[in-house]
C-alpha cells in the first residue's frame, strides 16, 4: 500500500518512511502543503499520513480541501497537539484517525492498516480470496493449510491483486504501488515477483492478460 507522508521534520519523516517500509508500506515523503497538493494530483496513494503544523500552513486546511472536493482518501493526522479538543477538531475536519506525537511505530502501522481496511469496507484484519488468506500486519499468508512468507514487495503485489479481484493491473500500476519516487525502479522486477508468487501459490493463481497486465484467476469454488 502506497502512502503519502506529509511531515516537515526530516528525522521524523525519514523515520516514518523507513519504519512504515518495514511494516510493508510504500511511502513518499513531502515536507510542505504545496508539495502534498502536487503529489495528490498525480494520484496513486492509498492513504495520507498528515502532520498538522507545516511550514506553509495547517494540515487541517489540506484535509478540508480534500473533503471539500469529495476526495475520500483515508487520512491519518499526526500531531503534537493531542488534547481532546484538538482531536475532535481533527476528526470533525474529516480525518479518519488521529495520533499524537510521540507515537509507537507498531501502533501507527496497525492504525493505518485498520484505517485502510475500513476504507475498503472490511471489518476483519485478514483478506482472503480463493483459499488464500493474507495477514497484512504480519505480511504472511495461509494457502490450503500451508503457512507462507512473502517479501515486502511480493506481498504488496499480492495485496493489490486481492484487494480488487477481477481488476486487471498493468505492470506500471503495480510498479507505482511498489516504489516510492525516490526509489530506483529496476526493469522486469514485477515479472520477477510474479514468478516468485506463482512458485508459492501455483501457476494458475495469477493470470497474465496478454498486453494488459495481471489479474487473479476466477474462484475455483474451494
Amino acid at each position: 500500500m502506497r502512502l503519502l507522508v506529509v511531515e516537515d521534520d526530516p528525522v521524523l519523516s525519514d523515520g516514518l518512511c523507513v519504519g512504515l517500509g518495514i511494516a510493508g508500506f510504500t511511502t513518499d515523503p513531502v515536507t510542505t502543503l504545496a508539495d502534498a497538493r502536487a503529489a495528490l494530483e498525480t494520484g496513486g496513494f492509498g492513504g495520507v499520513v498528515l502532520d498538522i503544523m507545516l511550514p506553509d500552513g495547517s494540515g487541517l486546511d489540506l484535509l478540508g480541501e480534500l473533503r471539500g472536493r469529495g476526495d475520500r482518501i483515508p487520512v491519518l493526522l499526526l500531531t503534537a497537539r493531542d488534547r481532546v479538543r484538538d482531536r475532535v477538531t481533527g476528526l470533525d475536519a474529516g480525518a479518519d484517525d488521529y495520533l499524537g506525537k510521540p507515537f509507537d511505530l507498531d501502533e501507527l502501522s496497525a492504525r493505518l492498516r485498520a484505517m485502510l481496511r475500513r476504507h475498503e469496507g472490511r471489518a476483519a484484519g485478514l483478506i482472503s480470496w480463493n483459499g488464500l488468506s493474507l495477514d497484512p500486519a504480519a505480511q504472511t499468508g495461509r494457502f490450503r493449510d500451508r503457512h507462507l512468507h512473502f517479501s515486502r514487495r511480493e506481498f504488496a503485489i499480492l495485496y493489490a491483486l486481492i484487494e480488487h479481484p477481477g481488476h486487471i493491473w498493468s505492470k506500471s500500476q503495480l510498479e507505482e504501488r511498489l516504489y516510492g519516487w525516490q526509489e530506483e525502479v529496476e526493469s522486469n522486477t514485477v515479472e520477477v515477483y510474479i514468478h516468485h508468487l506463482r512458485a508459492k501459490l501455483g501457476r494458475d493463481f495469477i493470470r497474465t492478460v496478454r498486453g494488459l497486465g495481471y489479474r487473479l484467476a476466477e474462484k475455483t469454488g474451494t
Binding site: 528525522v11 525519514d14 519504519g19 510521540p102 507515537f103 511505530l105
Partner: peptide, 12 residues
C-alpha cells in the same frame, strides 16, 4: 516532533 522522530528511529 523530535521526540516522535527519536522514538521512531529507535524502533527502527
Amino acid at each position: 516532533t523530535p521526540l516522535a522522530g527519536l522514538r521512531m528511529q529507535a524502533q527502527i
